[in-house]
């Protein structure tokens, strides 16, 4: 494809101006929010436990402990974290497998944070893996006993497991988990797990917000890591998304479906076709996950050095778009290849 055609197409960014920062969305904190927020799932689990079992105070204490551990992990307080890890371990020691519901429920509350601690603060992938795999069993038990929202935990756990394997350099294993969960989320049927995701979904909005989270989590990670594959032909992403052979969930945003097809085309070596599709579709809108837009934009700029043809102000606008609209920090932009060479 001629570079000047691409340069013409990219003129759509000439008028790009970042939107003023939005007021904090207070509804995001409410539990009725359509957005995906895993914190609410844990709280929903607590409420489920309280409904099903006595000892409300003890279970609330366990929940609160896990939240505290999560927070100190997030702020990288590694010594303080050991204090809460010890407290959590005290509670593990008290669990009795014969009281199955409590056993699985409390482990479902503790395991994800313990996995996070070992993965994020200790870089001990093996121990993290142990907690994660155990958790999948615990969640299955809870789903089997009526806690359907456990599906949210399950899909998130698949993504987390994929992340941990990815960071440990085990790309094949990572792709296997990612593929299973993506197949499940993207399809309208019951391909992988107990029942179609649409049975627990609150709305199309929620599905698309979850998809964005999962797409971005996988694609940005893969593109930033040369070991997982070349930028435009990333073996990891191909292993996750190629030939899924599913019928897409009809609530899924059509533009996201287009963007995925373009990403696959380009990654499979059919760059011309992929870019032609890009020119014929409307993927540069906020409904499409940022990572996909970033990938396609980079491919356009890269093709026959089309980026070099752009006038300076347009280049600046595109840079601004990457920062403001796609939410990339300067250091992320530096990590992501091969952006620097182009803009």
């Amino acid at each position: 494809m001629n570079a000047s055609i691409i340069a013409d197409y990219l003129k759509q960014f000439e008028d790009y101006a970042p939107e003023p920062p939005k007021e904090a969305d207070s509804s995001a904190a409410s539990s009725n929010s359509n957005k995906f927020d895993n914190g609410h799932i844990f709280y929903a689990l607590l409420e489920y436990i309280i409904r099903e079992l006595p000892e409300r105070e003890k279970h609330t204490y366990c929940y609160s402990l896990s939240q505290k551990l999560l927070r100190v992990c997030q702020s990288k307080e590694r010594n303080v974290a050991t204090y809460f890890v010890n407290k959590v371990e005290e509670q593990y020691a008290l669990l009795n497998e014969e009281q199955a519901l409590e056993y699985h429920a409390l482990r479902s509350i503790f395991n994800p944070v313990m996995a996070y601690y070992h993965y994020y603060l200790q870089h001990d992938y093996e121990r993290a893996e142990g907690y994660m795999l155990g958790l999948l069993e615990n969640i299955d038990y809870l789903i089997g006993h009526g806690f359907l929202d456990g599906m949210y935990m399950k899909i998130e756990q698949y993504l987390n497991t994929a992340r941990v394997y990815f960071n440990a350099g085990q790309y094949d294993k990572s792709a296997r988990y990612a593929r299973v969960v993506m197949q499940y989320l993207l399809s309208s049927g019951k391909e992988t797990f107990e029942f179609p995701f649409s049975e627990v979904l609150r709305s199309a909005n929620q599905l698309n917000s979850i998809l964005a989270l999962f797409f971005n989590g996988l694609i940005f990670k893969a593109l930033a890591k040369p070991e997982s594959g070349a930028f435009f032909r990333n073996d990891f992403l191909l292993a996750v998304f190629r030939e899924m052979d599913i019928s897409f969930n009809e609530m899924m945003e059509p533009a996201t479906r287009d963007a995925l097809a373009i990403l696959l085309r380009i990654s499979e070596g059919e760059e011309e076709e992929g870019l032609e599709m890009a020119l014929d579709t409307q993927i540069f809108n906020e409904k499409v996950p940022a990572s996909m837009r970033y990938f396609v934009l980079t491919a356009l700029l890269h093709h026959n050095n089309a980026g070099d043809l752009l006038p300076e102000p347009l280049k600046n606008n595109i840079r601004l778009y990457q920062e403001k609209e796609l939410g990339l920090t300067a250091s992320q932009i530096n990590v992501l290849r091969p952006l620097n060479a182009i803009v």
Binding site: L46, E47, I50, R56, E57, T60, Y61, Y63, S64, K68
Partner: peptide
């Protein structure tokens, strides 16, 4: 006596270390 506290308030009070072990 914490029985009158809603689940949400109880969990916040534990989070804030107002109610402790």
């Amino acid at each position: 006596d914490f029985t009158g506290l809603g689940n949400n308030v109880l969990s916040r009070f534990m989070d804030y270390e107002i109610i402790v072990n």
